[in-house]
Write a protein that binds this DNA or RNA. Structure first.
Length: 476
DNA sequence: ATGTTC
């Protein structure tokens, strides 16, 4: 889009002044090059969000923002319940609590290279991946209720993982305020056999090696050094989150008139935070957050079992687990006073700065790890939250590369087999149940995550700590 | 993203 439409706040911050029904400005964070490439729809959608009741400070878009359902993917907006604020299912997204977790292995790249194909095969054998994939866990209804209330804490109680994992997960592994009874029978049914599965699309499990350190002091606290091997898992709440999103979008669209909310776009469907529907959505959405946390925890357990067999000297300790599709109640300083806000992050990663009370003791001095997944076969990045991020974006950063091309267009341009062979030639082993899925996820179909991360760093939303590159990728 | 169009 045309940079001349904006008030330029800095080299990486672009503001649209409030006009018409906008209650606050819209601010897009991006380099000029990323802004020029960005779809005009991002500005239109960020502007639409700025009209919603109770919005505080500004409607934001991250450097990887693109056109989404109602809200842009890469959108951040905070609402004050006392000022008539709303909660929006489209402001969270369908894949509730989709996110990334990264585990140390204690191994170096050399140790992996020797048995890389065997490791890839063993992971592919053990990690259920792909559309409609089912796992070896089958939940009865009361177990489902316990999982939806307990998240990764429940998973650890069931024997999936270790208690020490929990402090390295947002919300310490369990999202408070979940209401499993607000989750429909249909959503429960879809999830019954899907715990501990990766799913499809851009979801993956990767074995990666650290190739660059940008901030040695923070990297040391994070336990990262060049040549070390880590495992990253990117997935979400599977069918359950999607079903909840679908049901509440419909219900919120129907109820908007009743709540006296005027919507510039029907897809912005929302409900007052202080309404029966708003509270019910929050209870269901928080249950879906717990589902995603439990899912990544079970996948961690499966991954540890594979390493125990193939590379028994490995020790998989959790660095951190982030979610990038959520609405969370947080206290932020607004004009010098603390206010409790409902922060929507849709395709945006929480990025708490140094000293934040919610961080574990070991990480609090430096800030929260911000895990940014690249596309298949490309680099990923580990950043750290900043204090200035609170003023800039309610402590939010980008979440990934973002598509540059539709899935359909990608399958016309690339063949899965050729991509797998090409990546294997560069030492990156892909294992996937779907060659078509691989073609849809071709690296060329995504924006350059490096440019997104650089802009995020330059804007001060989060700071670059390390780059990792893939060795093995289990692709959904 | 998604029992890939209830």
């Amino acid at each position: 889009m045309d940079p001349n439409r904006f008030t330029k706040l800095s080299d990486t911050a672009w503001q649209l002044e409030p006009t018409g029904k906008m209650r606050v400005p819209a601010i897009l964070y991006a380099s000029e090059a990323l802004l020029r490439e960005m779809d005009d729809k991002v500005a239109e959608q960020a502007t639409n969000v700025a009209t919603l009741p109770g919005i505080v400070q500004a409607s934001y878009a991250m450097p990887d923002a693109h056109w989404g359902y109602g809200f842009p993917i890469g959108g951040v907006a905070a609402f004050d319940a006392d000022a008539g604020g709303v909660v929006s299912a489209g402001g969270v997204g369908f894949d509730v609590s989709c996110g990334v977790r990264t585990l140390h292995t204690g191994l170096t790249r050399e140790a992996i290279e020797k048995i890389k194909p065997a490791l890839a095969d063993a992971l592919f054998e053990s990690i259920p991946a792909g559309l409609g994939s089912t796992g070896y866990i089958h939940l009865r209804d009361h177990q489902m209720t316990e999982m939806l209330a307990g998240g990764a804490v429940w998973a650890v109680q069931q024997g999936y993982g270790e208690a020490a994992d929990l402090e390295r997960i947002e919300e310490h592994g369990r999202m408070a305020g979940a209401d499993p009874h607000a989750v429909s029978e249909q959503a429960r049914k879809r999830q019954r056999n899907e715990m501990g599965t990766l799913g499809s699309g851009n979801h993956y499990l990767e074995v990666q090696h650290v190739t660059e350190i940008y901030d040695p002091a923070v990297a040391k606290v994070f336990g990262l050094a060049v040549g070390q091997v880590v495992v990253s898992i990117h997935c979400g709440s599977r069918g359950l989150g999607h079903q909840i999103g679908t049901e509440f979008l419909r219900e919120m669209a129907v109820a908007a008139n009743r709540h006296g909310i005027e919507l510039p776009d029907r897809e912005l469907a929302c409900a007052p935070i202080r309404s029966e529907l708003g509270e019910r959505y929050l209870g269901a959405m928080r249950s879906a957050i717990n589902c995603a946390l439990a899912n990544r925890q079970i996948l961690t357990h499966l991954t540890r079992r594979v390493f125990a067999k193939v590379l028994p000297e490995a020790r998989l300790d959790l660095l951190y687990d982030v979610s990038h599709n959520t609405c969370k109640v947080e206290t932020h300083s607004i004009d010098g006073s603390p206010r409790q806000l409902y922060v929507h992050r849709k395709g945006a990663t929480r990025a708490f700065g140094p000293g934040h009370p919610d961080l574990p003791d070991a990480l609090r001095p430096v800030g929260q790890p911000v895990l940014i997944g690249g596309s298949m076969g490309t680099a990923s990045y580990i950043l750290v939250g900043t204090n200035e991020g609170e003023r800039l974006s309610f402590n939010s950063a980008c979440h990934g590369a973002g598509r540059a091309m539709s899935r359909h267009a990608a399958t016309r341009q690339w063949r899965g087999r050729a991509l797998v062979d090409e990546l294997a030639g560069r030492g990156i082993l892909i294992r996937s149940p779907s060659l078509r899925g691989v073609a849809e996820e071709a690296p060329g179909a995504y924006k350059d995550v490096s440019e997104v991360v650089k802009a995020t760093h330059q804007a001060g939303l989060a700071r670059m700590v390390a780059r990792v590159e893939p060795l093995v990728c289990i692709k959904g």
